[in-house]
Amino acid sequence: MNMSNSFKLGTFVKTASPHVIEVLGTTRLDFVCIDAEHAPMDRAVLDIMVMAARTTRLQAFVRIPEINPAVVLSTLDIGATGLLVPHVDSADQAAEVVAMARYKGGLRGFSSSPRFAGYGSLGMKEALRAGDEAQIICQIESEEALKSAAAIAAVPGVAGLFVGRADLALSMGLDNPRDERVTQATLDILRAARQAGKIAGVHVGNNAERDQFAAEGADWFIVSSDQTLLRQAAQGIAHVD
């Protein structure tokens, strides 16, 4: 558990190294989100990154690069805790993603050989149960998705909503994710998630922003990224004449 016991904390991992995951596993973070959308992560890299997370107590979420049955299947087969799904704009799209990720009532193809099923050590019934526990978090990052946030949150199998403020700003014709109009939209999305009893997540740059949105009911935070944290720490010790 994190230090507050009231919300979950993680960070994006954009560096293709399992050692980064190992290091983060020594901290009090709750999870990592491996960013296969905006970082160079192919299936082989994702495999060792998730493997590293599973050797720690960290949950391993993966932000997938696209909504695609093969991508969803392979990412869950390697043992990801759940998926952060970008650019979910409608309830129908959310339902399609859930179906891709589910055995019961869904379309996910089954094999007992991958990591999630213990490399064949689990019986089929137990493997199906474990597979259907994967969490699907929909990223809301357009005006269309903003209008559909409540409907997306209500889709069975959607674990939560996550606000992508940068793309949301672009969709609104803005170039500042901290514009007050984006902030208000973010609060509306978080409210929709909470009213549905789902995870209310947002990406923030620092603890001050985290606390700001926690006060508004957000309970799942991706704070910064491994690259930014490294750069900030290095800059903090850099000697400048």
Rank of each mutant, 00 (worst) to 15 (best):
86 P>G: 11
103 Y>R: 12
40 P>A: 00
165 R>C: 13
235 Q>V: 01
230 L>Q: 12
23 V>C: 00
126 E>G: 02
187 L>D: 08
234 A>H: 03
231 R>V: 08
96 E>V: 13
192 A>C: 11
137 I>H: 03
62 V>Y: 10
114 P>V: 04
17 S>E: 00
38 H>L: 02
230 L>D: 04
118 G>A: 07
151 A>M: 04
191 R>E: 15
193 A>I: 10
107 L>G: 06
94 A>P: 02
191 R>K: 15
113 S>C: 07
162 F>N: 12
227 Q>W: 01
76 L>S: 11
91 A>N: 12
238 A>Y: 11
146 L>A: 01
56 T>N: 02
56 T>V: 03
32 V>R: 02
112 S>I: 09
126 E>K: 14
120 G>V: 09
63 R>F: 06
201 G>W: 11
88 V>Q: 12
114 P>I: 04
19 H>D: 09
200 A>C: 12
100 M>H: 13
92 D>P: 05
203 H>G: 11
151 A>C: 08
165 R>E: 06
103 Y>C: 05
229 L>G: 04
124 M>P: 03
169 A>D: 03
124 M>H: 12
58 L>W: 04
88 V>K: 12
120 G>L: 05
149 A>G: 04
71 V>A: 08
216 E>Q: 15
129 R>E: 08
206 N>E: 08
98 V>T: 13
161 L>Q: 07
150 A>H: 07
138 C>N: 08
89 D>G: 12
62 V>P: 05
183 T>W: 11
58 L>F: 01
160 G>D: 05
115 R>E: 05
62 V>L: 10
170 L>D: 04
212 Q>P: 03
82 G>K: 13
216 E>H: 15
13 V>C: 07
48 I>D: 01
33 C>I: 03
72 V>G: 06
139 Q>I: 14
183 T>P: 01
52 A>T: 03
1 M>Y: 08
51 M>S: 08
162 F>E: 11
164 G>V: 12
113 S>F: 08
104 K>Y: 07
144 E>K: 13
116 F>K: 14
53 A>Q: 00
70 A>H: 15
188 D>V: 06
6 S>E: 09
232 Q>M: 14
150 A>R: 10
140 I>N: 02
76 L>P: 07
4 S>F: 13
185 A>C: 05
209 E>G: 12
49 M>W: 01
88 V>D: 07
137 I>Q: 05
36 A>T: 02
188 D>M: 09
231 R>N: 09
27 T>I: 00
172 M>H: 04
188 D>S: 14
157 G>Q: 02
47 D>K: 14
132 D>H: 01
15 T>W: 00
118 G>V: 02
118 G>E: 01
196 A>E: 07
96 E>H: 15
35 D>Q: 01
122 L>I: 03
238 A>D: 09
25 G>N: 00
152 I>H: 03
101 A>V: 11
189 I>V: 14
95 A>L: 12
